[in-house]
Design a protein around this nucleic acid. Sequence first.
DNA 1: AAGGTGACAGTTT
DNA 2: TAAACTGCCACCT
Length: 111
Amino acid sequence: MAQSDFFEQVYQVVRLVPKGRVTSYGAIAAYLGAKSSSRLVGYAMNGSHQQQPPVPAHRVVNRKGLLTGKVHFAHPHHMQELLEAEHIQVINDQVVDFEKLFWDPAIELAL
DNA sequence: AAGGTGACAGTTT
DNA sequence: TAAACTGCCACCT
């Protein structure tokens, strides 16, 4: 295997998130079998900006649907704009109908 | 080499 | 009820 670090695994899953959908750090961690390491998922996104192809980190939010990682983007408001560009409503840094737009890899990719 | 960090999540007070 | 603390484990300095 190549340098398939935990980060690489996270990037792969995030890139599988369909457009117009969102997922949570815990869901990705759980899919990787490390639900207890949800923080690692967020930490992994730290280098997602320099990954190629780009990782849609804007589709990843915390369990509450809050855009907690928006501050890590080029500009704090960039994340919301990206979500709105995908027809995802974001109010007060929170994804509207988060439960409906939620995309769980453990379920969607299980098929 | 060893220790500290953190874009979370669950539990407890 | 809401707010605060702890656990967690790979990456970074």
